[in-house]
Nucleic acid binder design. Sequence first.
DNA 1: CGCCCCGTTGAGGAGAGTCAATGGCTGTGG
DNA 2: CCACAGCCATTGACTCTCCTCAACGGGGCG
Lengths: 240, 240
Amino acid sequence: MNKFISRLSKYADLKTDDVQALRALPVRMRNYSARQTLVQPGAPFDKVWWVEHGWATRKRRLPDGTVQIVNFLLPGEFFDLQGLVGGRCDHAVLALTDLAVFEAPAADVRTLVSDRPRLRDALIWSGVAEAAILREHVVQIGRQPALRRVAFLIASLRRRQALSAEDESDTLEQALGHDVIADALGLSRVHVSRTLKQLRDTGLIEIAAGRIRVIDADGLDRAAQHDTAYLHVAGPATSA
Amino acid sequence: MNKFISRLSKYADLKTDDVQALRALPVRMRNYSARQTLVQPGAPFDKVWWVEHGWATRKRRLPDGTVQIVNFLLPGEFFDLQGLVGGRCDHAVLALTDLAVFEAPAADVRTLVSDRPRLRDALIWSGVAEAAILREHVVQIGRQPALRRVAFLIASLRRRQALSAEDESDTLEQALGHDVIADALGLSRVHVSRTLKQLRDTGLIEIAAGRIRVIDADGLDRAAQHDTAYLHVAGPATSA
DNA sequence: CGCCCCGTTGAGGAGAGTCAATGGCTGTGG
DNA sequence: CCACAGCCATTGACTCTCCTCAACGGGGCG
């Protein structure tokens, strides 16, 4: 719960009774192992989920077998506003690593949202932030060459993990296969390999045991032409 | 107001008092001419908007001058859940054609959302639907060749305009410049021209006075490998 | 009438994809 | 303890889609 609460706190000024209400939710923890499917496309949204530990992805498989990863789900991140309103999932959710998630019945969260405006706002913010990430993803894939896309992905994942982590590590806490990066960025595995080599050779990153370490964060942002505003890191606080 | 209300009605089972509450909003209509900017990047979200007539786009301009259109805004569509929670805009909103929008003070809509669960759900659905469109956009741009992207864009815009129109026309109600299509799909103007020619030559579409008419909707979907589920057309109704 | 915007068409080039072979690392079984 | 299999990253060679540059043309508008 803690990562989720600390993430939500960044989106709204939660009071102690809001936090207590969250803690009073009848949650259930579930564990998945890497590569396991959490949600099949077409599955109904009758629960609300969030990630406690490990990374997951939203992905779509096209008729010709190719895969596009639409987004990553990091610890503290909320699975979807759609959990609040039902419907069916238009994509799959897949564990990228060993994964621990909490789930709560949609009805209980709906009650929370009705009774507590601050929690409602925090959850809406969470949805707004994910939409911003999606928009940025469109921009990157649509208009950036491979080097910038890869640089961008690494820089943004590092920032996102910092959002709900205590220590601001310069290393991505999970190892990413080249095929994962390729499917996220619309590139081929081979070209991702070449591009990562380029980033290593220019001294921006380092890879050990599959885990990427950012050596020169500013250089990486420059390589990505990365504007950090989109993450809505500070949430409503910046709106003043 | 009518297009907005009829669109929201597709997302939740609004009662007459919900509709009355919407109509009681102190809205203000604004008109813009084509190419005018409605929202600058960085502008605060202190109002809630929706489109009554005409088309708009969300776009981002990169440091090197290239543009990526992130999404289109069609009549009846809601500008953003972010209007409910504030913050600043990470992209620009631009009138693609002459445009009429309604705006309402964020505070009034927030009250509505607090008091009326059905309206709250309808608005959240609206945000969920836009997120779905964004995900689909990522998939198309990431993993589809030019022909499929263009076919997809045309097919999906036609579907979206049908969502809040009475007549299900086979013609896109607004003319799209090739540069607009290019910026939406991450292609060059020249290549869009070639691709449209291909779609015309195979008898899938027809263009008169810049407006695209879909001749063979099924063929277009096949060309796009288009799965219509993502639009959440029927909203929660399909969740049963 | 002429300008300008926009779409069209052609030629050449660049970035990324595909195919394929190699090599390291890990896990497993003899 | 070693051999082998399988997975993943790497590298090379070739191909293809799409981009860029450029010229041309038609239609609308001043």
